[in-house]
Amino acid sequence: MKPAPFDYYCPRSLDEALALLAQYGDEAKVLAGGQSLVPAMNMRLARPGVIVDVNRLPEAAVIERCDGSLRVGMLARQADLERMPVALDAVPLLAQALPHVGHWQTRNRGTVCGSLAHADPSAELPLAIVVLDGAIEARSSARGTRWIAAGQFFESYFQTALQNDEIVVGASFPARREGWGYAFEEFAGRHGDFAIVAVACAVALEPNGVASEVRLGLGGVADKPHLAPLTAYCGRVLSQRDLPEIANAAVADIEPPSDLRGSARYRRALATNLAQRALTRALASARTACDGLAQ
C-alpha cells in the first residue's frame, strides 16, 4: 500500500497555492491534514498527479471569534479546537461533535476545513455546520473569495460546491446565541467510527417558551447532511410530548441507504430515536439558557 507517484508542491502563500490549483485543476489535490486523503492514496483509490501541500501557509491555522461566529482557518486542526475552551464554549454543538470525529491521534492532524471539503455524508463536522447554518469560505485566483452557505456546500457523496480551482480557506460556525440550546447524538459501531446515524440539533426559545427555531440535521442517512424541514414546529411552545412527533417528522422524507452497517429501516429507526434524544437535550439546554436570561 504505497501511493502512486505525484508531483509535490509546498506553497508558502495562499496566492501560490491558488495559482497551482488554477494551473492543474482536476489533476491537483490539496493536502491539509491528510487523514482521509493519504489513506485513499495509499490504497491507490486516489491518485492525484499533483499534491499541493498547504501545511506551510502562514496564519492559516487561526481560530477566532468575530461577529457572532467562530472562524476556523483552513489549517486549524480538529484537536486545536478541542484545546481551546473559548472556542468550545462559543460553539457548543462543535464541542459535542468533535469527540466523535475519528480518534484523538487523527484529530491532532486532521483539519476542520479538510473534513468539510472531504464531505463524507456520515461525518460529524459537515452535519454540525449545516445545522448551525454556517458558511464555508472558498477562494480561487480567478474569482477571489466567495462564501458558500453550508446548506449549499454539500452536494453528494464526497461532492461539494467547490470548483476545482478553489480551496476552502476557512469556515464560519455561528456562535452560541441567546436562548439557544444544542445537542449532538451519534450511533456508531465502535468509538471513533463514522456514524451509522448522527443527529445535530439546535433549538431557539423565546423568553415566553415559544420555539422560534427548530433545526435538526441527520448524518449517515443520505448522500449529504440532511436538514429536516421542521418550520411547522416553530412558533409553538414545545413540550416533551411533542418530541416523538417532531422526530418522526424529521425522518419522514429520508431514504437512507442499506449496507454492511444496517438496513434502511434500521437507519430510519435509529434516526428517529437519536432525533428524539437530541431534541430532548437541545430543548432542555435552551430552557436552561432562557432561565439564565430570565435571571
Binding site: 491528510g34 491521534q105 492532524r109
Partner: peptide, 11 residues
C-alpha cells in the same frame, strides 16, 4: 503532536 506516521509524507 501524536500522529499517524503512515498518513504523513516524509517530505
Amino acid at each position: 503532536q501524536a500522529v499517524r506516521a503512515c498518513l504523513m509524507l516524509a517530505i
